[in-house]
Design a protein around this nucleic acid. Structure first.
Lengths: 342, 342
DNA sequence: TTGAAAGCGTTACCAT
DNA sequence: ATGGTAACGCTTTCAA
């Protein structure tokens, strides 16, 4: 690889002068500058990021830790993040954890080694045990760089974050079902170890209570935000014959599992059962499938997170800022139940 | 940040000794080793990747350039790549180009600056102009690291690659439609500047010719692999009233655009029109939507690409290896057209 | 306006 | 078995 030394030699100047044009700092004669730039271009010189990082004791690298790239919510968030990253000439290191705390720990250490300038993190799902949280907290503190949480927070966090109106959106979704006149309204929850899942569940409960609709335990299906679990629970539900009028599904994957089971059982949403979910599924929108939801702009959440991170890097001492994405209600008809016979 | 020097001082040894335990090389007394490891753990020491890269004149960083992360095909490929990356303790730098050659050039330069150990690349879509290809070729040569192409190749490439049976799968899909007895079979092509789009188009033409089915120009819809274009073309088609018996859509996004237009026009696949596409759409599979396709294991393509890259890094002089993913036919009923009235 | 030299945090080679 | 030191490719400070 060609180095600054080579460029200097070829251009007949010292490293210092080359460095000055590289960093656009200090005085350098217009002619020599042009000469140097020509040589650089001719040889396709690219300064070594490692050398630069080391010398400046600072990188322009951002780490992103995503729990499940298969989930379109996170790929949308990622796309918002990259948009801002590109615009600021930063380098993005991408890590996937598969919701596994061990992989997360490994990624965190790697990013610490990379001396990332900042990090965006959605913690893995298995943070039920307190010592796992403790470990996470330690690692983040040793990172020596700001962190922005996305979607899922950590208890007693000092870090900035971009979250969602979990309670409110769940309340709203449930309210829609209630106002449609459904009497028995079930829910497929997320993993209740996660605060966002509990908040959504609470939103549901609160709406039911406020409108004096009874909640039946048998219609509370304990899911985990994954397609397959939701599918199995829904399948059992349909096969049991004890089917509520309406179902509230707590995230995009849960909705998919539910829809799959419904189709298999020839249950049509909006006709035989009412349904509403949290999160949109882009493909369903595209093909105009009639699934109603409360949702959010995931790409914008990514942009916001990255912008928050940049703000924080600029101003390390400002107070913690939390951005809460509002929900948006999208009704497509599945919140109804036309066929009263079932 | 704590450095090797600090660890050495605290453990009461020299940098050299610490480095030896870090790299697990040379002799070091068991006791001192343990002592050093304890200190490292206590202080949560993470060696600087930049310093290490610089000193070793070599990184463990892989660059990935993806043209459109919103396309689930590429997010599946990415997930296969990360799987192998993780397993080999590599660091992945992720770049998105939005199919824009300028962004691609920028990413390439950045990755060169990062001195990546290797790169996985799906070139941006706009490689019609020869000087853009020339530029790409130059940049790759200056990268000083092996490249593996995924899905889309470059003319006269010397690099390894993982591609797809474009011609064959298109032939197969068309053949399915022919054998169903459809007389007028249209196609929504991809951007014919891309070789993969031309190959798919050729597969279609060949099948039509082999079975002596006439190809009507008016039923060749020139798309660009994007949802919206396919949607518009399909909409025009449905509104024109001149609707072929069957349509072959040339990628996942094209299929989605087509399906959307069909739904809007109350045209039901498998009943009012026959359809088959290249690429699956996971969500459609999950909800058991009856869309037939020829498809491939995208995650496996990612794994393969990364494994090819590792092989190439190990053995830089071996001859070029190209892996061609086979297609798989998945019939769900949309290849039929029950309603002969339309 | 330019150059020399120290320093960034590692590794690797050579002594001891 | 351990330590000293040069080197990696840059930036930055100081001197000229």
């Amino acid at each position: 690889m060609i180095t600054i030394k080579d460029i200097a030699r070829i251009a007949g100047v010292s490293k210092s002068t080359v460095s000055r044009v590289l960093t656009d700092s200090g005085y350098v004669n217009e002619d020599t500058k042009r000469k140097i730039e020509d040589v650089m271009k001719e040889y396709g010189y690219q300064p070594s990021a490692s050398a630069r990082n080391l010398s400046k004791r600072e990188t322009r690298t951002i780490g992103v830790i995503v729990p499940e790239i298969g989930n379109s919510f996170f790929s949308e968030v990622l796309s918002g993040i990259t948009e801002i990253v590109d615009r600021n000439d930063l380098t993005l290191i991408y890590c996937n954890t598969d919701n596994n705390a061990l992989k997360e720990e490994k990624a965190l250490k790697m990013l610490a080694g990379q001396r990332v300038r900042g990090m965006i993190l959605t913690p893995a799902i298995d943070y039920s045990e307190p010592n796992v949280v403790k470990k996470l907290r330690e690692l983040l503190n040793k990172l020596n760089a700001p962190v922005v949480f996305v979607d899922r927070d950590m208890e007693n966090s000092k870090w900035d974050g971009v979250f969602y109106e979990n309670f409110q959106s769940a309340y709203c979704a449930t309210e829609v079902l209630i106002k449609e006149g459904h009497q028995t309204i079930g829910i497929i929850t997320g993993d209740l170890n996660l605060k966002i899942a509990r908040d959504r569940f609470k939103g549901y409960c609160q709406a039911m209570e406020d409108y004096h609709i009874p909640v039946y335990d048998k219609h509370i299906y304990h899911g985990d935000f994954q397609t397959n679990t939701a599918y199995k629970l829904s399948k059992q539900m349909f096969e049991s014959g004890d089917i509520p009028d309406a179902i509230f599904t707590c995230n995009n994957l849960t909705s998919l599992g539910f829809i799959k089971a419904a189709r298999e059982n020839k249950i049509k949403l909006g006709r035989d059962i009412a349904a509403i979910g949290i999160d949109h599924v882009e493909v369903l929108d595209i093909i105009d499938y009639n699934f109603s939801c409360v949702t959010r702009d995931a790409v914008e959440m990514g942009r916001k997170a990255m912008n928050l991170l940049l703000d924080r890097i600029e101003n390390p001492t400002k107070e913690r800022t939390i951005s809460v994405m509002p929900y948006r209600l999208v009704l497509k008809g599945s919140e109804k139940k036309v066929n009263k016979a079932i």
